[in-house]
Amino acid sequence: MSTYVYGITHDTGALDGSGLTGVGDPPSEVRFVRTDGLAAAVSTAPQGLRAKRRDLSAHQEVLVDLARRDAVLPMRFGAVAEDDEAVAAELRRAKEHYTALLDRLKDRVEFNVKAVHIEEAALRTVLSEDESLREANERLRAQDGGTPAERMAFGEQVAGALEELRRRDADTVVEPLAAHAEQVAMGPPVDDCLANVSLLVHRDRGEELTREVGRLQGKLGHLMEISVNGPLPPYSFVAEPAQ
């Protein structure tokens, strides 16, 4: 039976997976593979596991629950070891690395902030700042939108200007937030966001960070929407051990 792995934590002796819902349908039991001070939260891997909402959610919930109790190193969704012994062997092999990482992440949580331009406001901004775009827009308007080729060329220029605006505005979001964080990790620009940034903070400073997000939303809300998710397990701040 192969073994699904959620994450790694300290073996405090008091670990209990009975309140947790594992991946799979019906949900698998969550248990712990312990070795030498470390413990991996695992389940027996269900057959044909896919990235369904239920399973993604189960993975996330198990980690959130563990993170509430102690530092945890989250695995990326979908890690499957050959069996429990393979998990134990990995814990033994890189024990020092995992232990040091857990110590460093003690009482630390991740907050993820995504900021997205409000499209109409962003379009207004790029048009008002660029006279040639404005003129091109007026020209096309006067011609009922112009030919498809003209529209496309114009739209491409606008897309470039929007991209430039995203780059410019990213700092106005990231810099004030970074001031509250111990570590910062940038994520990919999902959903056309202008900023996708993860911040590592002491769990006691989470509120301070969300207040800062609220302040930024108040200041920049006419141009963008900013959302914050956290406290989260530190997905963006775990590094693999050397092989």
Binding site: S2, V5, G7, I8, A45, L49, R50, A51, L56, H59, Q60, L73, P74, M75, R76, F77, G78, A79, V80, A81, A86, V87, A89, E90, E110, N112, K114, A185, G187, P188, V190, N196, S198, S227, N229, L232, Y235, S236, V238, E240, Q243
Partner: peptide, 21 residues
């Protein structure tokens, strides 16, 4: 909102396989 974290961040350990995604 945190899909990109669950699927693109987090530990990847070479000796473990990843389910087919």
């Amino acid at each position: 909102e945190v899909l990109d974290l669950i699927l693109d961040k987090g530990l990847v350990i070479d000796v473990f396989a990843r389910v087919s995604l």
